[in-house]
């Protein structure tokens, strides 16, 4: 049976001042293999990365208004690991901070799809 994908699709209210909006994408567990593409509208910002990111600057709030951040990828369970697959999405710098955590215990060798989308609005 296929595992449920890690899906996020929601709106994020930005501040109208010049605060930088930052992103964390933390992939786990230990030794699991990840691949993802991060894009802001149709502009690819991170192309097929294999590592987590912390405090990644997306831009100033007003510059992000009306744009959509997408993260598409997958996490592959590897042998000799715990078979716990996790993902933490954090966005800071807007009207509120968001933190969304995903976790799943998979069968050895399973692969979990990732599709995240954040729509920035004023």
């Amino acid at each position: 049976m296929a595992n449920d994908p890690f899906v996020y699709d929601n709106f994020y209210k930005i501040n109208t001042d010049d605060d930088q909006v930052t992103l964390d994408l933390i992939f786990g567990g230990l030794g699991q293999s990840v691949d993802y593409v991060l894009a802001l509208d149709d502009v690819i910002k991170i192309d097929h990365s294999k590592i987590s990111i912390q405090d990644y600057t997306l831009g100033k709030g007003p510059d992000l208004a009306g744009k959509t951040l997408t993260v598409s990828g997958n996490i592959q369970d590897m042998p000799a690991t715990s078979h716990d697959i996790t993902l933490i999405l954090r966005i800071k710098g807007g009207a509120t901070n968001i933190e969304q955590s995903y976790a799943g215990e998979v069968s050895p060798g399973d692969n979990i799809d990732i599709s995240l989308a954040v729509h920035f609005y004023k």
């Binding site: 964390d24 786990g28 030794g31 699991q32 990840v34 590592i51």
Partner: peptide
């Protein structure tokens, strides 16, 4: 207890190893 695992460190992915 592994502090890196518990704190969800950004250094957990396979490539980070």
């Amino acid at each position: 207890l592994s502090p890196a695992v518990l704190s969800k460190s950004k250094l957990l992915s396979l490539k980070s190893l």
